[in-house]
Design a protein around this nucleic acid. Sequence first.
DNA 1: CAACAGACTCTGGTATACAGAATTAAGCGC
DNA 2: GCGCTTAATTCTGTATACCAGAGTCTGTTG
Lengths: 215, 215
Amino acid sequence: MSLAIGDAHTPLTKMVKNALRQRILNGEFEQGTRLVEGRISEEMGVSRMPVREALRELAAEGLVKIIPRRGATVSMPAVDQKMDLIEVRATLEALNARLAARRKDPDRIAALQRVLAAGEADIAKGDFSEMRAHNDAFHTALGEVSGNATLQDLIRTLRDQTSMLFKQDDPVKVRETWREHADILRAVIAGDEELAAILASRHVYNAVEPEAVTD
Amino acid sequence: MSLAIGDAHTPLTKMVKNALRQRILNGEFEQGTRLVEGRISEEMGVSRMPVREALRELAAEGLVKIIPRRGATVSMPAVDQKMDLIEVRATLEALNARLAARRKDPDRIAALQRVLAAGEADIAKGDFSEMRAHNDAFHTALGEVSGNATLQDLIRTLRDQTSMLFKQDDPVKVRETWREHADILRAVIAGDEELAAILASRHVYNAVEPEAVTD
DNA sequence: CAACAGACTCTGGTATACAGAATTAAGCGC
DNA sequence: GCGCTTAATTCTGTATACCAGAGTCTGTTG
């Protein structure tokens, strides 16, 4: 299994963690599935330790729940927590956009524009395969403009935790999403903090798939 | 070594973590001090593993920085990160207060009022020894009123990371702090979301010790 | 006194073991 | 059959011991 984890030079723990995160976000493990250390370590061909650590870290990110003496399970957020998460995320994305509008570093904004263009180009081409990546890239780039690393970390974590609440495959929605991205970017460039903040906040709420938070 | 950690039944890792957190927040370890796994484990009479895990968790909380292959060091936030942290924290405390004002659960508010009274009583008595605990209690209680668990977690973490930026021992400042607490509570009870949010946000900025973020 | 070799210190991992909590399977009495 | 015990099995939390290789420190030497 060469591509199993890929034996590079990055810490093993990180690789295990990423592999697990991937699998969880892909829905390969359902909500509540037990993640047994021994099983995973064997499956990935590593010892238990890196797995333990990876699980702890994922727990810190909220993708996994660890109950003492009972181990880890996949933890999609409970219904009543979903809105909580979204509320927090929207607030932080708003702060992020506000800060970006305040600093509006030209270089970073240029980079952001390139990301926006890339996303729009794919949409024009009708190629939706990379949308998730483009989307992540946009939000990451926006985070760089704001320049608040703490905030970026938090948002990334929240993004992972909420990613399953958003629909990514509906072309109509995707187009809407990117229109909103463009609006946010415009507000940022204009230095309009208030507008940027409001747009970013709404952007989160708009992208939520209603059924996801209802049932 | 008997009272080193105290061999209870709670996971060892948690105890190690708490002990370390305590020592860091108390300033017993200065910024940049290396936290060598072997040394700590020996000192606390446990094996390296719980120490490793504790360090990772503290790293997730931001109290410690881990550089691959170089280990953990105490990481007070860098100057330019301090304002970042405070900005984020202020934003989240504002959201928290806003949600509290929205829900204003009577029982939780009653509890909050008791905490406020306890703090004020100690101030009246001139007893400042428990102020930090009272302060934590107030913010925790406020978090319960808002009822957003995710938010509470985040705020607690941020509180730990920023705690050293606040002065707790100046009687004048303490009195001010509690006046602000009372104001926030009043806004929450009145259901005035906007006011509660603004007051909570300012409360954070007001409590910052100017020198702490300057140098 | 700068650059380099060597000795030493730690981290990230591996393997193995084991007590005791949880979970599951097996019995057993009714 | 069905519910309750009990025994067997599975896992977690920790501990030991060990190792390769990255980093760090030190002393030397040109």
